[in-house]
Amino acid sequence: MSLLPMTVAGEKALRDELKKLKSIDRPRITQAIAEARAHGDLKENAEYHAARDQQGFCEGRIQEIEGKLGGVRVIDITTIPYTGKVIFGTTVSLINCETDEEVTYRIVGEDEANVKIGKISVTSPIARALIGKEVGDVAVVVAPSGNIEYEIDKVEHLAE
């Protein structure tokens, strides 16, 4: 099994969510189940069934996060010497060669990706086309609508 890359901030966010699920949500749901049981007949007890559904979701999410954390390699970009090249964790400003539209992305792990806030997965077509390139290079992204050329305007090697 290969380890998936993740930023320090991404790992912290997963660990924080796991801690909340285990220390706050799980006890709250257990208490809700106990209270619903005290009301009697479980067959027609909507509160009980809702609490059991929440418990299933909570336990499933705990298992999912623990599995993800067991299969990640945390990469602290601040420990990597800056070479000017696009690597995991860098922030890249791009100019679409056709439209002159500028976009900025940070290359992160799969679980951290969120295009709306400018974070793209290291396995995405854009990131794969950018890795190893420098300012001034043109990266060709193979997209369903056709190839898109981006010129790399800026590469930032920032802490999180």
Results as ranks from 00 to 15, higher is better:
3 L>C: 09
3 L>W: 10
4 L>R: 13
7 T>C: 05
9 A>G: 11
11 E>H: 00
13 A>G: 06
14 L>E: 04
17 E>Y: 03
19 K>N: 08
21 L>T: 03
22 K>T: 01
22 K>R: 08
23 S>C: 00
23 S>P: 00
24 I>A: 07
27 P>V: 01
27 P>I: 01
27 P>L: 03
36 A>I: 06
37 R>L: 11
38 A>T: 01
38 A>W: 02
41 D>Q: 03
41 D>S: 01
41 D>I: 01
42 L>H: 04
44 E>I: 02
45 N>M: 01
46 A>Q: 13
46 A>D: 13
47 E>L: 10
48 Y>G: 07
48 Y>H: 15
49 H>I: 02
50 A>N: 14
50 A>T: 15
52 R>Y: 04
53 D>F: 10
54 Q>H: 07
56 G>S: 07
56 G>F: 06
56 G>Y: 05
59 E>Q: 13
60 G>Y: 01
60 G>M: 01
61 R>P: 04
63 Q>T: 04
63 Q>F: 01
66 E>D: 12
66 E>C: 08
67 G>H: 06
67 G>P: 04
67 G>A: 14
68 K>N: 06
68 K>M: 11
70 G>N: 03
73 R>A: 13
74 V>N: 08
75 I>W: 08
75 I>P: 11
76 D>I: 11
76 D>Y: 13
77 I>H: 08
78 T>S: 09
79 T>Q: 11
80 I>M: 11
82 Y>E: 10
83 T>V: 03
83 T>A: 04
84 G>F: 06
86 V>H: 02
88 F>S: 06
88 F>M: 05
89 G>L: 05
91 T>R: 13
92 V>A: 03
93 S>W: 07
95 I>E: 14
95 I>N: 05
96 N>I: 08
98 E>M: 14
100 D>I: 01
100 D>P: 00
101 E>Q: 07
101 E>V: 14
102 E>L: 14
104 T>W: 03
105 Y>L: 09
106 R>Q: 09
108 V>C: 09
110 E>D: 09
110 E>R: 08
114 N>F: 15
114 N>M: 15
115 V>W: 12
116 K>N: 05
116 K>M: 05
116 K>P: 00
117 I>Q: 10
122 V>C: 06
123 T>L: 10
123 T>P: 01
125 P>S: 10
128 R>M: 09
136 G>M: 11
141 V>E: 03
142 V>F: 09
143 A>Y: 06
143 A>E: 14
144 P>F: 06
144 P>V: 07
146 G>V: 12
147 N>R: 12
149 E>Q: 13
150 Y>Q: 00
150 Y>P: 00
151 E>N: 02
152 I>E: 02
153 D>P: 03
154 K>D: 10
154 K>G: 02
156 E>A: 12
156 E>T: 14
157 H>R: 10
158 L>Q: 11
159 A>S: 14
160 E>D: 15
